[in-house]
Simulated scan of single mutants.
Amino acid sequence: MMGQFVITLREGFEAVLLVAILVAYLRRSGRAGEIKFAYYGALGAIVAGAIIAAGVLKIYGGLQGDGKELFEGLAAYLAVAVLTYMIIWMTGKDVKRDIESRAEKKFAWGIALIAFIFVVREVIETVLFLTPFAAQNAVETATGATLGIATSLALSIAILRFEYRLSLRKFFYVTGVLLAFIASGLLGYGTHELIEVAEESGYESWLFEKAYDLGIDATNLLHHKGAVGSIFAVLFGYSASMEYLRVFLQFGYLGLTLLLITRKFRASGT
C-alpha cells in the first residue's frame, strides 16, 4: 500500500500543482476569464484517464495463465520505463517557469489543451504505475491510491492557500529518489514474472536460477508477501529470494538511476 500511496501522492500533487500554477498565472496576468478553460481541460483529462483505466482492467480481467503473467511482466516494464523518464525529467526542473512560458501566448481553448496535457499525462502515468500493483493486490492498490490522492490535494491546497515555503526542486528530488527504489522493485517483479513465462515455455538459463534464498517461509512476516516484508518489497524491491537476472537488472537499474537523478539535481542548482 505504501508504494501505491507514494506514487499517487507524487502524481496527484504534480497534477494539481501544474493546474494551480496555470490558474494563478492567468489571474495575475489579467486573463481570469480563461481560468474556466483550465478547469475544462483538467476535467477532460480525468475522464480520459478513467476510460483508459477501465480499458486496462478489462483487458487484464480477460487474461488467464501465462497470458496474465506475461501481461503483468510487460506492464511492470512499461511502468518502469515511463516512471524513469518522469523522474529524470522532473528532477531539478523549474516547474513554475516552464508552465508560465507555455501559457504566455495561449488563449481560451489553448489553455484547456495545456491543462489537459498536464493532467492526462499524470493520470496515464498513474494508471501505468498502479497496474502491476493492482495485479498483485487490488484492495491495497485502491486504498493506497485513495490516500495518496487525498494527501496530494491537502498538500497542494496548503501550499497554495497558506503559502508554505516548500522547495519544489527538493520535493521532486526526494520523491524521485524514493520512486527510483519503487521502480527498481517493479523492474524486479516484472523480470520474475517474465522468467516464469520463459520457464513454462521451455526456456532454460543459469540466469533464471536463484542468486540467493534467505530461507524465509511464506507465512513469515518478513517474507516479501508478509505484513512487514511486503512494505519493504514495494518501497525498496526487497524479496526473500531472487534470480540472477533479477538481481542484475534490478540493482543495476537502481544504481544507474540514482546516479542520473543526483547528477541532474546538482547540475540544476548551479
Rank of each mutant, 00 (worst) to 15 (best):
V174S: 05
S184N: 08
I231K: 09
I182A: 05
H223I: 06
E196D: 10
F232G: 11
A211Y: 13
F181N: 01
K210N: 12
G229D: 12
H224E: 15
L178K: 00
A211H: 12
I216N: 01
S167K: 04
A218S: 11
Y164R: 00
T191S: 05
S167Y: 08
F171D: 02
G229K: 13
Y203G: 04
G229E: 11
R165E: 15
L214K: 12
A240S: 15
S241V: 00
H192E: 03
I231L: 12
G229W: 07
T175K: 08
Y189M: 04
S201K: 14
S201I: 02
V234N: 12
E193D: 05
F181C: 03
F181G: 01
A218R: 08
A240W: 10
I195Y: 02
F181V: 02
L187S: 09
Y189N: 05
T219Y: 12
L178E: 03
E196P: 00
F232M: 15
F232K: 12
S201W: 06
A183L: 10
A218H: 07
V234Q: 14
Y173E: 08
L178M: 12
S201D: 04
D213N: 10
G215Q: 05
L178H: 02
E204G: 00
L214S: 07
H224R: 14
D217V: 05
V234E: 11
V234S: 15
L222M: 14
F232I: 09
G188V: 06
F171C: 04
W206Y: 09
T191F: 00
V197Q: 06
K170Q: 13
K170F: 10
K225D: 07
E199C: 03
G190A: 02
F208P: 12
A240G: 12
K225Y: 02
Y189C: 02
G215I: 06
A198E: 05
A233F: 00
L187F: 01
G237R: 13
I231N: 07
E209L: 10
V177I: 15
S239C: 00
F171E: 03
A240C: 11
S239Q: 07
K225Q: 10
F232N: 11
L187R: 11
V177E: 01
G237A: 13
W206Q: 10
Y164A: 03
F236R: 03
E204V: 03
L168W: 09
G229I: 11
G185E: 01
S205G: 08
I182R: 06
G237T: 14
D217G: 08
A233T: 13
E196K: 08
S241L: 01
I231H: 04
S241Q: 15
L168G: 14
G190P: 01
T175F: 15
Y189E: 02
A233E: 04
N220Y: 13
S201T: 05
Y212A: 12
A198T: 09
I182M: 04
F172L: 13
E199I: 05
L187Q: 07
I182C: 08
T191G: 01
G226E: 08
Y164P: 00
F208Y: 13
L214R: 11
F181E: 01
F208D: 08
D217P: 07
H192Q: 04
I231A: 12
L207A: 04
Y173K: 07
S241R: 15
S201V: 02
F181I: 03
Y164L: 13
N220P: 10
